[in-house]
Design a protein around this nucleic acid. Structure first.
Lengths: 328, 328
DNA sequence: CTGTTAGCGCATTCAA
DNA sequence: TTGAATGCGCTAACAG
């Protein structure tokens, strides 16, 4: 941990016997430089262990080649997956993707946006924590940089959006269940999340649309603990069979785990479906779920971020993955 | 998306009729300022929608109040959990925690370190991708800023380390299994990861120490897919009963899923244990696992990062969580 | 192709 | 307490 003052371009320039401008040109490759000089500069930089100060560069340039991603919670595997795929989408580009976790807090989310804006990021990707209360964060972001909302959105903002068609996703589940089994003998319960995010909202609406406005609904959050709790309530109400349409894979996994531990059979007594398509390989029976095309969505985000287009919204089509928690 | 030039301190100063120095003092709160002036400045800043440029501040100051975390893969739920807990540990401090995913690549990992160093972070937290090949990344980081390795480490570096005692963790598993069942009737197989990370390495060593040097070992990576694959191989070799000691919860979950799908019973035929203590509530039976005290570890990292102490290493003690995949 | 100059936005001197 | 001046490290504009 040698904490000697870091070398600057001036140091490199002095050692190489050139001007700082030349050093800058060599190191950033923005302009043609005489090979011999370039070599001298490179050598000097190496000897001095020179590393560029991106603060100086960013201050001078208009762009920082940086994109920020603010997401609600890393422990939600779907958000983690989105983060990972986005990171990969930017891996072979020049821009760095930096992440910030809002820890499911509106306040922290705003802080993350402010932080990235202060760092002069070129673009911001946001998975808003809350459908309404994240409005400030999204507006703040969109007012200064290219902003794309991912998976969740705040209605009425100027920011772009990339997500999946939740209505179509639920339709896939409905058609699958309706075709494969008797919805009367195994009545449907939607195990969802309180509609304070657009995805929770849209999935609830879609469930009511496809399964009927009077479908049974249990609303909690996007967690396995809630899945367990919901299943427990259902059993407490005396249910011995049913169909659990869940708003997320983690909810479904928790529900399945609880049903099995209570001695029920899946899918014989209870059928369960998830949503998102992450971690389906973790459980047995494997989850029947709606897979979101995360790689494609990540690529779309990358393209939106680098493009000069106006704000736009893109909904991608999910696909059904039939697992062992529903009849084949 | 109004893309008018952002207001600077000079703009605020002009509108408020004061000097930029005063604006700086008011906004950073570094010095006492006349309340009336402070109010004028605050008003002007609000009217102009002023937001500080952290590049300028960072360039001028010595510190950026920023800590970077470079981790190998967000889809590994244990790393996500560490990231989330670390984010939370920094939530009520002044410093921002920024994340960068190395996507399990040495090259990308170095890029992340360079990126953070270029941004003049005050400290760097690293979960090294590889026990040897991450040496450059760790050395690079440690040569310029306070650096702490988390969970995994590169031996022989000057950087601090925070992790769990893998030897003790495996001992907990061993003692639990030895007490509860017949290790001969259900012979032990270690389903681990190729020892190219220190955690994989240490767990393998510990398994050999506690279960015997000739214990059966299947080595892959930290994924559910590998857990399934390993279980499949074991069954292919004709095993009808056994004990699977796994190097991670995701591996264990995959193994359990495959065993169950092949018609075996857990824990009656096969007992399975995990490691890490994340996501145990996702599966049925719930995993018997070694829980790492992630909150405490995150707090330790935070303290190490802000302290002025020399590099040090801290091993925390894990605890056993008995689930349904092993006899009670 | 290269050097000189200037200034990005900010916080800290130093004077007043 | 406040203002004027300086410079953090870098790159763009300009001249040569």
């Amino acid at each position: 941990m040698s904490r000697t003052r870091a070398a600057t371009m001036a140091d490199v320039a002095r050692l190489a016997g050139v001007s700082t401008a030349t050093v800058s040109r060599v190191l950033s490759g923005t302009r043609a430089v005489d090979p011999a000089m370039a070599q001298r500069v490179t050598d000097a930089a190496g000897r001095l262990d020179y590393r560029i100060n991106l603060l100086g560069r960013g201050l001078r340039r208009t762009s920082t080649s940086t994109v920020g991603l603010v997401l609600p919670d890393l422990r939600n595997p779907f958000f983690s997956a989105l983060g990972q795929h986005l990171a990969r989408a930017f891996a072979d580009s020049e821009v760095d993707l930096l992440l910030f976790s809002a820890d499911d807090s509106i306040t922290t989310e705003v802080r993350g946006v402010r932080s990235f804006l202060g760092r002069q990021v070129d673009a911001l990707v946001l998975i808003p924590v809350h459908e309404e209360r994240s409005a400030e964060a999204v507006a703040l972001a969109a007012s200064s940089v290219r902003t794309v909302q991912l998976d969740r959105r705040v209605p009425g903002t100027a920011a772009s959006y990339v997500g999946v068609s939740n209505r179509d996703g639920v339709a896939l589940v409905h058609d699958h269940l309706a075709a494969a089994a008797d919805l009367d003998a195994q009545p449907v319960t939607y195990v969802g999340a309180v509609p304070d995010s657009s995805s929770a909202h849209e999935r609830l609406d879609a469930v009511r649309r496809w399964f009927g406005a009077d479908v049974d609904c249990l609303l909690g959050d996007f967690s396995a603990a809630w899945g367990r709790e919901a299943a427990s309530r259902l059993l407490g109400d005396g249910a011995a069979a049913g169909t659990l349409v869940c708003a997320a894979d983690v909810i479904a996994a928790g529900a399945v785990a609880h049903l099995l531990s209570a001695g029920h059979r899946v899918p014989d007594d209870f059928r369960v479906t998830g949503f998102d398509g992450v971690g389906a390989e973790l459980t047995h029976p494997s989850l029947t779920t709606v897979r979101q095309p995360v790689e494609v969505m990540a690529a779309a985000i990358r393209d939106l971020v680098v493009s000069e287009e106006d704000a736009s919204a893109r909904w991608f089509e999910p696909t059904l993955v039939v697992g062992g928690t529903s009849p084949a």
